[in-house]
Simulated assay, not measured.
Amino acid sequence: MIAVIGGAGYIGSHTVKYLIQQGRKVVVFDNLSTGHREFVPSHIPFVNGDLANKNDLNQLFKSYPDIDTVIHFAAFAYVGESVQQPSKYYQNNVINTIYLLDSMLDHKVKNIVFSSTCATYGNSVVSPIKEDHPQIPINPYGRTKLMMEQIMEDYSHAYGLNYVALRYFNAAGADIECEIGEWHEPETHLIPLILDVAIGKSEAISVFGSDFDTPDGTCIRDYIHVADLADAHSRAVDYLLVNSDNLKLNLGNGEGYSVLDIIKTVEEVTGKSINKIMSEKRAGDPARLIGSAEKAKQILGWYPQLKLEDIITTSWLWHMKKFGGTK
């Protein structure tokens, strides 16, 4: 059985759906602080618990003794917020995750797929970024994830923990069947914010920074469809069940798109004109983050299937279904 921590959230719920489709046994653990109960199918075991509560964790593993692998999504993940509220991030993303690791080991569960991030790299020295790129995060969010990679390495040496750390680039898109999608409150992610303009929910999209060292002056990111991320997590579980060595892998498309590229693609997919407000850069935002996923392809046999137009199209269909608007 796989325990999906944070399985009612955005990436977690898509991964849960994918695992179920594969016929795997899953239990979801989530405190619903940012996740959505309706994203978890009613027939799937659900534990409303908090990583900060050791009793909740102990009860999870006692109630489901056949858990052999954990997938951990339950982290705060807003760069700007991490700069403003670092305590919140170190408490949840580091201390509470240590509680999870300790509870796993107490119950003899030694496999974990960990949701890491390209933010551990900081400003890229070369592009695309490979896994051996220097890890010099420039914001507290990235530092919390790097700390956990290092802590898991120490736990591996000391206690025999087995882990795969998946360093995502920008997760985006929605469920192909439009049952679940990207739904944050408040919303801070670029694509749904642009779609808010497309449906008339917002008047304009703020573009943070127009003088980055990029062709059009706006920052460049590597976008990966959430369904492709779900597939990678499933493959990582398979890897852990038959291998005892640890992995740190990038997950991305290997292609970079600027903020203005994204806005243009949204306009093409939706047929709507998107108003823009050029604003100041945000603290902690690197100019360019593009990843090489060659290692994941070689080791896991994972290849991203969905492109930017698929990301925008599925996001648009979900956004209209959830938040209104017309085609």
Rank of each mutant, 00 (worst) to 15 (best):
G7S: 08
Y10I: 05
Y10C: 06
Y10K: 08
I11A: 04
I11C: 02
G12S: 07
T15V: 10
K17Y: 09
I20Y: 07
G35N: 08
H36L: 06
F39V: 05
S42P: 09
L51R: 06
A52P: 02
D56E: 11
N58H: 09
L60C: 05
D66Q: 15
I67C: 07
I71P: 00
H72N: 03
H72C: 01
E81T: 10
S82W: 02
Q84M: 11
Q85L: 15
Y89F: 13
Q91A: 13
N93T: 08
N93Q: 08
V94S: 09
V94F: 12
S103K: 10
M104V: 04
L105W: 01
D106Q: 13
I112Y: 05
V113H: 00
V113F: 00
S116F: 09
Y121Q: 10
K130I: 15
H133G: 07
P134L: 12
K145E: 09
L146H: 08
M147L: 15
D154F: 15
Y155M: 03
Y159S: 09
Y159N: 11
G160Y: 08
G160D: 10
N162V: 10
Y163M: 01
A165N: 09
A165E: 04
R167S: 05
R167G: 03
A172Y: 06
D175C: 15
C178A: 12
E179C: 12
E182D: 14
W183M: 11
E187I: 11
E187N: 13
L190K: 01
I194G: 02
A198I: 03
G200Y: 01
V207Y: 04
F208A: 07
F208P: 03
F208Y: 13
G209V: 07
G209K: 02
D211L: 12
P215D: 09
D216G: 09
R221P: 01
D222R: 00
H225M: 07
V226L: 12
A227C: 12
D231M: 12
S234V: 11
D238F: 08
Y239R: 11
L240M: 09
N243D: 15
N250S: 11
G252D: 00
N253G: 03
G254Q: 01
E255L: 00
E255Y: 00
V259I: 14
V259P: 07
D261T: 06
D261G: 03
I263Q: 04
V266W: 02
S273P: 10
E280R: 06
D285N: 07
I290F: 01
S292H: 04
A293E: 03
E294N: 10
K295Y: 06
Q298K: 10
I299F: 12
L300C: 06
G301N: 13
G301M: 12
G301C: 13
K307I: 13
D310W: 10
I311W: 07
W318E: 14
K322E: 13
